[in-house]
Design a protein around this nucleic acid. Sequence first.
DNA 1: CGGATTTGACCGGCGC
DNA 2: GCGCCGGTCAAATCCG
Length: 317
Amino acid sequence: MSDDQKNDDLYPFNSYFYDYMGSGGNSTSTFPYYDNNPLMYNQPSPAQNLQGPSSSSYGNPSSYLSFTDCLQGTAEDYKSLSGAFDMSCNSLAESAAGATTSAENPKTPNSSVSCSSNETGVEEESSKRNTDLQAKGNEEGNDKSKKLSNPRKKGEKKPRQQRFAFVTKSEVDHLEDGYRWRKYGQKAVKNSPFPRSYYRCTSQKCTVKKRVERSYQDPSVVITTYEGQHNHHSPATLRGNAAAMLSPSFLSSNSSSFPIFNSPEFLTQMLPTTSRNYPNHPYYQTLNPQHQQFQLPNEYNLFQDMTSSSFIQKPEP
DNA sequence: CGGATTTGACCGGCGC
DNA sequence: GCGCCGGTCAAATCCG
């Protein structure tokens, strides 16, 4: 396990988790974490998806706006949310990582382009790898014993795409998020009885990936990590789809107000339950390639900062 | 039959 | 240098 990954991934299943549990020094937090949150908790099955959270057995949906409701708003509405998340994450990331932000997410008034450099990098790498494979295939003919070739020059670090991870309580491992995914791998996770699944967006030229794993501490919890940004619209409607809202593309392609995030209900559901119900859980958070760790918690205040500065206020025009 | 999933092999990075 | 581990590939298999 590399330090890179320790800092990057923050998985509850690996050595980093134990470190976190033991010392508390590298504490992480969740964002967002949905516990008893009728807005996001218990992702509905695909069949339930369009019905919104009301089909959930968790929480009290009647008390809250559902994401379905929210998503029935204008595109501008969720542009704002996305922008807010992105802006928040970027500013936090920068503050945590100092000035080393050159490789990713240059702050621009239009946050929708904030991740483009990373995507380009990975796409280039991917193409390069394919090219290499083809070249190698030509060179080596049908030799199947050597499947893969070196995808990049030595010393050239693979650029990290922006990551966005969140925890969802669900019986279904692969949560419906409005995009189509193709599973390309599954690996056993160290210290966990549950495997981790790797998915790639099936859309052409879309490099977004996601990993799905189940918490071994709480098997009812599914941890989904998105990496990269979709370069296309969701093939399915976003209605009633919290995960789609929280996908990187959604969270980074926007710019005005999104009323639900101004609501105290949302905020109080969003974070406090995190520390209340899972005090030792290495909460997921917004991740990015710069190894930042957001220590939300004292999280609630920070999140409030985030929300007050980013959700409530409109991003700069 | 075409697309999705499964699964074993492979690769690179890292620690020892 | 070796072993471990996360991530990915791709042939085989499954499924609608």
